[in-house]
């Protein structure tokens, strides 16, 4: 009995020792020399591997930071300034503070929601022009045709952005256009990259989170654009005329508000004939300061618009 136990112990011991030697040898032979700094940098990153920085993942980002030695052109959007400061400390370099940003969906939910001609009421109606029956992927639907709404620039509603979000911050809204959860959004930009029509844009969050933006990317001529969607930007330029800080430019029949210049006065919102300019997080609808202040829209319309604007 004792002998058997001894044999077993010896056999296992010899096998163990043999493999230990092999493992040690292999570990020495194929050792990868790596800057320990990479591990330290990777440690402070959020670790979501969202790819927002343009690298394959957090580890790759850390490698890039260490290789470069500074943070020029490298920014971890989810981590924001806090992480940037930590990395800068590790690398021993300066860091510039960035304005916090958020993803903004620039499409009116016109598939279902049309502001009536007198702009006093919001009509909810299914305004689909066709029924998409293929693979639920925006990138693919975009190659098949114009989309259910009939607008060749508008949201396709299959949710490629939702699938791309690593932070559960974007969801399909009830009207077929995605809604961004501002609390969760880290402005990594994954959704903006996933959108085949480039509808989602990263914009500065703005003071008190208040933002004004053109919620349309339709570059067609006014009449054509209006045919696809009643809320399309027709590039009329009225907004640009009233803007006190020249933040609005018109190009290719489309108005664009530069978020760096915008002071969120909302004069353009009142001017827009197609209600394509949306605003977010303001306590009340804008009021015309004209001699005879007249509410531009009934409460229902404005409230609904703000809802969608918060999207």
């Amino acid at each position: 009995m004792t002998q058997q136990i001894l044999i077993a112990v010896m056999v296992l011991g010899i096998i163990g020792a043999f493999f230990a030697v092999v493992l040690y040898y292999v570990a020495q032979k194929f050792k990868v020399v790596e800057d320990p700094l990479i591990d330290e940098v990777a440690e402070v990153l959020p670790g979501a591997n969202c790819g927002g920085c343009g690298k394959a993942g957090c580890r790759a980002f850390a490698e890039a930071c260490v290789a470069q030695g500074n943070l020029e052109g490298l920014r971890c959007a989810p981590g924001g300034d806090a992480v940037a400061a930590k990395i800068a400390q590790l690398l021993g370099c300066a860091v510039e503070q960035g304005e916090p940003q958020v993803a903004v969906v620039r499409c009116n939910p016109a598939n279902c929601r049309i502001v009536a001609a007198d702009s006093t009421s919001v009509v909810i109606s299914d305004n689909r022009r066709s029924n998409y029956d293929g693979l639920r992927s925006c990138a693919f639907e975009n190659t098949v045709y114009t989309g259910e709404s009939g607008c060749h620039f508008g949201c396709l509603g299959c949710g490629d952005c939702v699938a791309a979000c690593q932070f559960d911050a974007i969801h399909m809204g009830p009207d077929g256009v995605p809604v961004v959860d501002e609390e969760k959004c880290t402005a990594c930009g994954a959704c903006a990259k996933a959108c085949p029509r480039r509808i989602i844009e990263l914009r500065n969050k703005g003071r008190m989170n208040r933002r004004v933006f053109v919620s349309c990317v339709n570059k067609e001529k006014g009449a054509v654009a209006m045919k696809s969607c009643a809320n399309a930007c027709i590039g009329c330029g009225k907004c640009a005329k009233v803007c006190p800080v020249e933040a609005i430019t018109i190009a290719d029949n489309l108005s664009y508000i530069d978020y760096k210049k915008c002071i969120a006065c909302r004069k353009c919102v009142l001017e827009c004939p197609t209600h394509a300019i949306h605003y977010a997080n303001f306590p009340a609808p804008p009021v015309k300061p004209a001699p005879k202040p007249e509410a531009p829209a009934a409460d229902g319309a404005s409230a609904a618009k703000q809802d969608s604007a918060q999207a």
């Binding site: 293929g134 693979l135 992927s137 693919f140």
Partner: peptide, 13 residues
């Protein structure tokens, strides 16, 4: 399964 659709998407990618 919309295999042909998926493959077209894959080819584009």
């Amino acid at each position: 399964k919309p295999l042909t659709d998926e493959i077209r998407l894959g080819k584009n990618k």
